[in-house]
């Protein structure tokens, strides 16, 4: 067994790992059922602001619109589910004492921490893809396909993506969301190497995410200079991919920033871990 497969097996043998999937499934099913039950009213509300400028025929609610709506609603909450597992990757083994057992074996600490990091990324990717598959799957079953109409946050325009573009854009948006959420995972993972308990890294990383979101959204001029340095500034990368036309320059800038944060958080975790005295 490779170290990565061992880490992935361990991760997916734990009950805690499935909390994220259960919560995501519950939230998506609930939201889509509620929307379905109130489809007419919600469709009217949604198209109310558009009726002055557009001639609307049929329902504006479809799988792509619902998926974008759910992503907008959940991307503040999903980080918690990521942190729940990522913040536990190293610290739980320190708490339980199993870290001692694996670190007296031949594999180097560098290989072990790298395998754990990639196992965390694998979990993050799987959770986001699960969210996407569920949103789209139930959405198609309940509402069918159609054009993706979305209101871009902070932009004075409405975006309408034709049905044939909407699917590809949604897939790209979810792939970008994986990158976005991996930064939260990396941060929680870093915290996990610093302490020997699981709660601290989970709460700590969520606190940092919330604080960064708050700082990033407060309408004060003196905070403007801080925003380029907050990773939360770039977490909305997936929204850029639902725009038309897509500003690929901006997407690239966001992606590089997120990858930079991933690399920086991992590098610190790596250096802490390989030099750490194991006292637990």
């Amino acid at each position: 067994m490779s170290l990565l497969s061992i880490e992935i097996r361990k991760t997916f043998r734990r009950w805690r790992t499935y909390i994220g999937f259960i919560v995501v499934a519950g939230a998506v099913i609930l939201l889509e059922v509620i929307i379905k039950l109130n489809e007419t009213r919600m469709a009217q509300n949604f198209s109310h602001g558009l009726s002055g400028d557009f001639l609307i025929s049929g329902s504006v609610l479809n799988a792509w619109v619902i998926t974008a709506f759910i992503m907008n609603s959940l991307y503040i909450h999903v980080p918690f589910l990521i942190a729940l597992v990522a913040g536990d990757m190293v610290s739980s083994e320190a708490t339980s004492g199993t870290l001692r057992f694996i670190l007296i074996r031949p594999p180097s600490r560098s290989n072990i921490i790298t395998a754990k990091f990639f196992a965390m990324l694998f979990y993050t990717a799987l959770l986001i893809l699960f969210l996407g598959a569920l949103c789209v799957g139930i959405g198609l079953a309940f509402f069918g396909g159609g054009d993706l109409i979305s209101f871009q946050t902070g932009m004075p325009h409405i975006v309408i993506l034709p049905a044939h573009v909407a699917a590809a854009s949604t897939v790209m948006a979810f792939l970008a969301a994986i990158l976005s959420m991996s930064v939260v995972g990396s941060l929680a993972f870093l915290f996990s190497t610093l302490v020997d308990n699981s709660i601290g890294p989970i709460i700590g990383s969520i606190a940092v995410v919330i604080l960064s979101f708050i700082i990033g959204n407060l309408p004060f001029e003196f905070l403007e200079s801080l925003r380029p340095y907050l990773f939360t500034t770039y977490m909305g990368i997936w929204q850029l991919l639902l725009n038309s036309p897509v500003d690929w320059g901006e997407v690239g800038k966001y992606a590089l920033a997120l990858l930079g944060y991933d690399a920086a958080f991992f590098a610190i975790a790596y250096f802490v871990f390989v030099r750490k005295d194991i006292k637990s």
Partner: peptide, 22 residues
């Protein structure tokens, strides 16, 4: 080292399989 700690959520066999394969 100190006390034997294992992955409590795994079987004895799985624990040995994982630790041995390292």
């Amino acid at each position: 080292v100190e006390k034997p700690d294992f992955y409590l959520y795994l079987s004895a066999y799985k624990n040995l399989e994982i630790l041995g394969s390292l």
